[in-house]
Design a protein around this nucleic acid. Structure first.
Lengths: 232, 232, 232, 232
DNA sequence: GATGAATGAGGTTTCATTCAT
DNA sequence: TATGAATGAAACCTCATTCAT
């Protein structure tokens, strides 16, 4: 496995670029926690995968728990970076929401560990991240954007009147999240592989359809605009 | 110690009604697994909570893993029973979907452990339930009902043409599930208590709104029916 | 030792007389803590010396710390039992104090671990025994006896007027304790083996001499009684 | 990392005056060893408290054990310095012994760490100081003084005939030492705070009383001198 | 059907110490 | 003289599981 990275390490020889060991531990931990959950993860496996001395985990992170917090902050930072790249402000409201919805799905597909780590943290009542000031504000920019686009869409007459930005955010996220987070048990009861590419594409289209139908369709039954063609 | 108190498996000398210990272990296990996840759960806590001898767990269930499978079967049986009580067949399509959507939300609210156990099992890639024939078919009746109601709704002209029953099922479930399963991490980034009654009511109405908007609103922009008043 | 209780121990067969393992752990722990102090003691060595499974230490005592508390209670119980055997009430005041003084010295000589464990506990500010109600009252009977004998001695005119029983108790104990507890460092600076029998005898006589001189000799210079011959 | 900041042992570039780091380590070690005992002390805490690099401990002292020896030599040097300041030679025998007795008590009160370090070393059978030639002779001057004063006291007819200087030294030291070293466990069984100022004063007077009673009071019952007033 | 003492592998964490610079 | 990253052995403790009765 790691034969190619083993460079004839002589006993007592140290010295990796500073911060390198820390990064390796964090990366290995993210994988391990995602794969096994918090309690199921083994610090032992983490340091072995990272190829560092068992002690460094404690040297850098203090405990398994604080390592987990570091992993979660890493995850949230990734998610924010992903959203930051979307440049949603520049788009028309409907395009912005569509892009966000698709990007959310794509992010979860690309980084399976994000979902698993969030699920793990929820099983633990978010007790590890509750005190992180940084995490508490990671989503503020995105929520602000959604709010603005909803407002603009309403002003332009393309969105229904009474949209709650927080609910919309939860819906957009949840429609992707649940499909992927629960694809294993869903796969059992549906007797179907939800991870298959075609199936995933179908789901992606469905989600956009649901979100935009909701936004266009007023509770009073009024229809806002002729729907555009659904791009792949 | 005392010879006269040494009992040698005489019939009728059980200190508890037969099966009672088994039930108590299962109930305690369900709680413990829901609270701590599979790896985090302690057999010790389970038997202590059940008030039985540690050995009985192995006597009845063989291992922690097989006990977990039993818990999952118990959970799925509960869910099915819940759905079975809804009598969706007798309702008009739209009413049936609305009732199912609301009932799904209510079930997850009432039995928090269902969500946590499903999440736990998904972190483990459904490896525990994969081989359970019983679980694989638990949802068949519900999926059949959804399919029929979608078909009827289309025939009646109240639902859009191209509805996929499986996607609809996942959407209905996911819109409730995600809100509740991830309410702890969402609570942190939204700085809001998603468990508050008013907040939950709002979410419940939102979900019904989303689902019905989607069903009524054709991708071609045609509107099916004037929407009814949203009942509380 | 335990040959008569050994009943053909087959592999995997457990079953020592109940409480036996617990007793063995306690005895081994007392030795180890006395020899190495609290932090220096190794739970590993304890269970190896006791010949029991490592886990039983935690099964019976919960932690290294609680095991140490159990050892201390054992020690204090021993000391009290030793004092209880002296039947000091029946003696004349002077004889009672002499016997107590000599017995204190003899006890510390015989049970070296008592001194070492008490010293260890004092290094730790008595934090382990502070909450033990049992230990707090172990010395009450002895202190009551000293008080009564001091009172009787004064009434009989053989002891000085102003004796404080607590100070006397501390003095009697300390004169023996310090010689033995610090015999190693004293041995270095005195270049002498304080553990040699003749040397110990000399100390024992000296201590009795000091204590009785104090009791007989009033601060006002009055002499109470002609001193008796010092018995060996 | 940066090549230009790499310094190669140029004279005068030390960040602290030479020997300063060594002194800081020694002071921190003395505190830590006194507080936790030898095994309980952490080299880590020592270097952190000293504010120096972990490596310096080994650079200057070689090992935790040799550092402990250095601390003990430091302690003994302090004690000797304290005794050297007393100018006992110039006093009358009785005054010299009284002053020594009181000063011993006061020293132990003032430097609590002395007692704790000596106790620690005794638990370890004085193995660390056994080979220190310097420590072996630290008390020689004081013992010589006691011997001389005892001799003079006898010659003047104020002390009893048969006083052993070593025993007297041990008694004087022990009466103070035990009260203070064991004040925590004594406090538990006496349910009293031996560290309270009034209580300590009482003990101090008691000790002087015991020592002088012993010296004045011959085993033959003869009284040497009218006792003076006990000074506070 | 039930008990409780016992097991042993392995988990997380600590700690004195050393290496390369 | 000084630094800071790294080491590895071993410490305390946990946990699922089984044995004899």
């Amino acid at each position: 496995m790691d034969a190619e990275t083993t460079k004839r390490r002589r006993p007592g020889q140290a010295t990796r670029p500073p911060g390198e060991s820390q990064r390796r531990i964090l990366a290995a931990a993210r994988q391990e926690f995602a794969a096994k959950g918090f309690a199921g993860a083994r610090t032992d496996s983490i340091v072995r995968a990272a190829g560092v001395n068992p002690n460094l985990l404690y040297h850098y992170f203090g405990s398994k728990e604080r390592l987990f917090v570091a992993v979660m902050e890493d995850v949230y930072a990734d998610v924010r970076a992903h959203h930051g790249d979307l440049e949603l402000e520049a788009l028309a409201p409907e395009d912005a929401i569509r892009r966000l919805t698709e990007a959310t799905f794509d992010l979860f597909v690309a980084s399976d560990d994000v979902i698993r780590l969030l699920s793990t943290e929820n099983i633990h009542h978010a007790e590890h991240i509750r005190d992180s000031e940084r995490i508490a504000h990671f989503y503020d920019p995105l929520l602000a954007i959604i709010e603005r686009q909803v407002e603009r869409g309403r002003a332009l007459g393309v969105f229904r009147a009474e949209v709650d930005a927080q609910e919309l955010f939860i819906t957009i996220t949840g429609l992707s999240y649940f499909y992927l987070s629960n694809r294993h048990t869903l796969g059992v009861i549906l007797r179907s592989d939800l991870n298959a590419r075609a199936r995933r594409e179908r789901r992606r289209r469905h989600i956009v359809d649901v979100v935009l139908s909701y936004l266009r369709h007023g509770a009073d039954g009024t229809q806002r605009l002729p729907p555009p063609q659904n791009p792949a």
